[in-house]
Amino acid sequence: MRIIRYLQKQSQKLSLGAITDQGYIYSLPYNNYLELVEQAKKRTIKTANLLSELINDSLPLNEQLEELELAVPIESPEVWAAGVTYQKSKEARNYEATNGKLDATTFYDKVYDAERPEIFLKSTKDRTMGPNEELFLRSDSNWQIPEPELGLVLSSDGEIIGYTIGNDLSCRDIEGENPLYLPQAKVWARSCSIGPAILPADMVSDPYKFNIHCSIFRNEKLLFEGNANTSQLKRRYEELVHYLKRDNILFPGTVLLTGTCIVPPNEFTLADGDRVEIEISGIGILNNVVKVQVNQAVS
């Protein structure tokens, strides 16, 4: 069962909903996902059990998922990201940093094997988009790609309370030019999306068995697709969360993206109008079109 937020057609109010494995959608009597989790904790029951109770006492909506206007499943105050957590990511970062010398060794190799992972601030609530919303390409980059990632939804004490999908748009040329440019290679308006749903953590038996699939379309023609599995992850989720919360403040609903193992060919870059689909088993499909910002200019 997955949790979504959607806009009610008549009232135009955002509502929380649950989607069953059979595709039925039920409205939930909570304003957001954190309230749902907190209620389950107060009653000392699993989120799954609470959802079952709520569904048994209500009727499903008449709409199908495709008919709903979905919103970002949680308004995360901050979205953080972990880098170089997969072998493929390490290889891609080395390629960027060495102008294509595939056998070169860089600081990315050190990060991949180090005790401390790479963790950086990716986005904030106002920069983070939801499913089917437009993402923006950066105007001063000529080499941009999506990074499909599993996202951890966290409580204020670092407990993993859910899983979602993240699209971490990245500028390979800016990051490759100088590692100190990482914030500019990662953070700008509409450079991140999460959704379309949250899979409650207590419904997941093994979070290292998520299948990840990414497809990129140009004029609705498939340009690239790739697959990965979270079993390929170098680090444990608890390890990443441990370093994120060390000497830090975690706001309730913080999302931590866990890195990518799907990288398009080195000659590929996103273009205005490209559509990116990221699917993770059990969570759904996050769909976004990337656009060049109107009236953006490089000064």
Rank of each mutant, 00 (worst) to 15 (best):
E279H: 02
Q22K: 14
Y95A: 14
V153R: 01
G151Y: 05
L240D: 09
Q296K: 15
A114P: 03
D168Q: 02
A48V: 03
T47V: 15
P264E: 05
M129C: 08
V241D: 01
E53C: 07
Q232M: 14
N248T: 09
F217P: 03
R172D: 09
Y86M: 04
A97K: 11
N288H: 04
Q64C: 13
K209R: 07
Y108K: 06
G195Y: 04
R138S: 11
S139L: 13
E159C: 00
C192T: 15
C192M: 14
V241H: 01
P252C: 11
R190D: 03
I145L: 10
R43C: 08
Y112A: 06
P196V: 07
P117H: 11
P207I: 00
D57T: 13
E78K: 13
L70H: 02
T164M: 02
I249S: 09
P207N: 02
L223G: 09
Q10G: 02
S52L: 11
I55F: 09
S27N: 13
Q87M: 10
K186P: 03
Y237Q: 12
A97I: 12
I280G: 03
I74G: 04
Y30Q: 10
G226C: 12
A114R: 05
G158H: 07
C192N: 12
Y163I: 14
I249T: 15
D173N: 10
H242C: 10
T230E: 07
A82Q: 00
I25W: 12
Q8I: 05
L180N: 08
A201E: 08
K101F: 09
E279S: 13
Q184E: 09
Y181F: 14
R93L: 13
T105E: 08
S58L: 10
L182A: 10
N178G: 07
Q232H: 14
Y33Q: 04
E35W: 07
L270R: 01
L14I: 13
E96Q: 09
Q8A: 12
T269P: 06
L70D: 05
K122P: 02
F136C: 05
Y26P: 01
L244S: 05
N227C: 08
N295A: 11
E67V: 06
A228S: 15
V37H: 08
L256Y: 00
T258V: 10
L16K: 09
F107H: 14
I119Q: 00
I145R: 06
K221C: 05
N56H: 15
L65M: 04
L59K: 12
Y163P: 09
E75F: 02
E53Y: 13
T98C: 04
T260F: 00
I249E: 10
M1A: 06
F210L: 04
K42M: 10
N56M: 11
Q12C: 01
G100D: 08
A48F: 02
S193K: 03
S170V: 09
S141V: 05
I283P: 01
N142Q: 13
G83Y: 01
G195C: 07
I165D: 00
G195I: 06
